[in-house]
Design a protein around this nucleic acid. Structure first.
Lengths: 217, 217
DNA sequence: TCCGGCCTATTGTCTGAGTAATTCAGAAGC
DNA sequence: GCTTCTGAATTACTCAGACAATAGGCCGGA
């Protein structure tokens, strides 16, 4: 979290085991295993003699769910970052809806319907409501049956969840988001790729609209 | 590679340190650190008593460049997987081109131009030509100045590189891909989002077309 | 049939030592 | 003065052995 928040800048050397002996009271093994995990996510790179240094941000694996989570847990992410995540949603989700419209099984539709009913029942203001929202978006992406896209779902889901919280924190929701959700569902159920794409685009666009004041583009 | 190729199926237990003592002659520390890396990429999950078991594929971090590389190194990936990667390109790259058209700097344009000239010089059949091709696509994605999208670039790049090799292996290229590349460049240089999107869509579509016989959709 | 406690296998952690590799500095040669 | 080579120091990497903690399964009892 110190890395993703920028407290430790890229290029900076991660103390030669100093971390292990002073601040965190852990042994070298535990420290090393932790560093290996960070290296696997592209956050750091360690070489003999040089030490373990933080990689430039472009090498980070930003789509990794854990890395994304650290971004949010480390405090309020920058508005630019939230904007970027919305752009990613705007790119991926309409396309996913279009593909899902062509490939969804009846079971997929049932799952989406369940999620939306759950969402109506609890309301998006509730934690359960947000979970249901996320479940809906997950169901749509998984209905594409495209493995790489599906692995994006967890990242998108994290963005969905957090941006919803973000919106709430700054005043109540502008308006009921359910009609847009149902339009997406109907379009996917009908099987038309382009209507589904358009409906999902509207949904994400509205979410972006509600967040716009905070993003101060 | 044994995991991504399916030799070890999800749910299977990864030998309780048996791996370390018999096949690979490595100590427990090294083995543990390797497992930690796999866990960081979502390939495995280890809990006390249960052991280290392979996660279901939907938990894998398929966008991770290394994981993607393992897929290709482990032998010929399934046609369905290659198809999925192309679909991902079809989703991401046209959108990236549209965004790049609005935000690219003169330096970005110079970089793209350099890559294309390099590509013409060596030809796509050459290894240097492929590298230049990848450089061009990287330059486009990075010109969006969208950090999460940029971190997708390495995955997309791997897909680009491999699918090009894949095509070559099965006969010479159908036709010269340079005109499409230049059209994308011109559109991005002109600054129109929609023309850039369309041009990139054509480029990816042609690449898909050339590969279609192998994908046997 | 259900519940709780014990047992044990497995991961997690720690410590100390030794090896390998890379970079930096200095010296030698051109 | 510049380049090249060589050596040393620093750092990551690996190994080995031991102990702690956790959680699943087993057994006994209610």
């Amino acid at each position: 979290m110190a890395i993703v928040s920028g407290a430790i800048k890229p290029g900076e050397i991660l103390g030669n085991e100093i971390e292990s002996s002073e601040q965190l009271q852990v042994s070298r093994s535990a420290y090393r295993e932790a560093v290996r995990m960070l290296a696997a996510k592209g956050l750091v790179e360690s070489r003999p003699k040089t030490g373990t240094q933080v990689s430039p941000q472009r090498r980070w694996n930003l789509l990794d769910p854990e890395v994304l989570a650290w971004f949010f847990e480390a405090g309020a992410p920058s508005p630019a970052f939230v904007r970027d995540l919305f752009e990613l949603r705007m790119v991926v989700e309409p396309a996913a809806a279009a593909l899902a419209a062509e490939r969804r099984t009846p079971e997929d539709l049932a799952r989406m319907r369940r999620a939306l009913l759950e969402m109506e029942k609890h309301g998006v203001a509730n934690e359960d409501g947000r979970t249901a929202d996320r479940e809906f978006h997950d169901a749509v992406i998984e209905a594409t049956y495209n493995a790489p896209l599906v692995s994006l779902a967890s990242s998108i889901g994290a963005a969905v969840r957090w941006t919803t919280i973000f919106k709430q924190r700054h005043g109540p929701l502008a308006r009921d988001p359910m009609p847009e959700h149902w339009r997406v569902f109907d379009a996917i159920a009908a099987g038309g790729a382009e209507p589904a794409r358009a409906a999902m685009r509207d949904l994400v666009a509205q979410a972006l609209e509600d967040t716009r004041p905070e993003i101060e583009r």
